[in-house]
């Protein structure tokens, strides 16, 4: 192996040295020095490529898959029941359909939270003026002290603008969505296993609060209602 072949081999796969490669390296100081430089670069390259993986990635994939599989099973069951009990079982079919169907808004807010968990882990707080500016974008304002707020950004859920806040709750972080264009008449509960939540009517649209299981969400809602006013 000559110097040219050595360097070609080095740049093709520095981590897979052949016997010829090692022999040349032992006898050529210049190529040995180059090999050392490339191998240092290679180790650094590996470190750089190993970007941090989002927390809970595998769990989220399994969760999505489990939910999808459950839907498919529910759908199959509903069809089977429909075929067997066509006459006189419309009520049962309606019940099964009702069980299988998930409200779209809960899915949409859960998707936002689980897609990026970073806002739930931030330790720095958002300055109240910045929160005020964000709220003003949807016609709301802060009144009094709602701090600490760890995240306050405009969001878009189901094509409608809203504001996504993260507050400190009693057991952990609480996510709040203010959705002025998502009117609701009823109180809905969310239970994804990982997050519990409430969707309630607000002066404008609806408010969603999500927290860890056990978080007293009604108290978080009271804080939101007390400190956020609609213009």
């Amino acid at each position: 192996m000559d110097c040219l072949e050595f360097r070609r081999a080095l740049y093709h796969a520095p981590e897979e040295p052949s016997e010829d490669f090692l022999a040349h390296r032992a006898g050529c100081a210049e190529c040995a020095a180059e090999a050392s430089r490339v191998q240092v670069l290679e180790a650094e390259l590996r470190r750089v490529m190993e970007v941090p993986v989002p927390d809970g990635l595998a769990a989220r994939i399994v969760f999505q898959h489990t939910r999808g599989a459950r839907r498919q099973v529910s759908l199959r069951l509903a069809w089977t029941a429909g075929i067997l009990l066509t006459a006189g079982t419309a009520g049962l079919l309606g019940y099964l359909y009702g069980l299988d169907r998930e409200p779209a808004l809960p899915d949409a807010v859960l998707a936002v939270v689980t897609r990026d968990l970073t806002p739930l882990t931030r330790t720095a707080t958002v300055a109240p003026p910045l929160v005020g500016t964000t709220l003003a974008g949807i016609g709301a304002r802060l009144q009094g002290e709602l701090s600490p707020i760890f995240h306050a950004k405009k969001c878009n859920i189901r094509g409608e603008d809203g504001v996504h806040l993260v507050l400190q709750g009693e057991r952990g972080r609480v996510t709040v969505f203010l959705l002025p264009n998502e009117p609701t008449n009823n109180r809905l509960t969310i239970d994804s296993g990982r997050f519990n939540g409430l969707i309630v009517p607000a002066d404008r649209g609806s408010v969603v609060v999500l927290g860890e299981p056990g978080e007293p969400l009604d108290r978080a809602l009271e804080r939101v209602h007390a400190h956020i006013a609609w213009k």
């Binding site: 490529m49 190993e50 970007v51 993986v53 989002p54 990635l57 595998a58 994939i61 399994v62 898959h65």
Partner: peptide, 19 residues
């Protein structure tokens, strides 16, 4: 089988996807 694959390979696939 599927969940074992998710747990074994999701992190490295994420890194590849990122790049």
């Amino acid at each position: 089988r599927f969940e074992a694959m998710v747990r074994a390979f999701s992190a490295e696939l994420y890194r590849y996807a990122y790049w």
